[in-house]
Amino acid sequence: MAEASIQPLTVTLKVNGRDYTVTVEPRWTLADVLRHQLGLTGTHVGCEQGVCGACTVLVDGEPARSCLMFAVQMEGHEIVTIEGLTPEAGLSPLQEAFHRHHALQCGFCTPGMLVTATALLNQGKPLTEETVREALSGNLCRCTGYQFIVDAVMDAQGGK
């Protein structure tokens, strides 16, 4: 282990439409680099086991666990975090729907929920309660019991 080559690598990450050139150890997860190198702390880390979904970001438009990817892998990919889904002023229609429907309590899972729900809404397919629940099934929430989140996503689709 001692001499394992951990030489940091310099990579350019495209996050929320902006290029960041950072020097990272290969073992640093994307979640850690987003949070601690880029200061984008909206992406939360809840398990580092790939289960809870709090760290979900969009990679090339699709939801992915940033705790299960390394930053060095991300060159050439477009990453979008909750910061990138937040308008300069006010709330996005989805965020607005979350607010209206009381779809968050402690708020820790919320960024991951919003990211997954955004990807779902972007597909433009008609949604049913069942498909929304299925799409969100990889994002755990301990506070809300999900019902108001489902309502918010369905409502946001209506409002889109």
Binding site: G42, H44, T81, F98, H99
Partner: peptide, 21 residues
């Protein structure tokens, strides 16, 4: 009443424990 807490939580402005740096 809709919650006054929501704005910061929805827009990634909230500061949780690991955001204390």
């Amino acid at each position: 009443v809709s919650r006054v807490e929501d704005q910061r939580l929805l827009t990634a402005q909230a500061r949780f424990m690991d955001d204390i740096q």
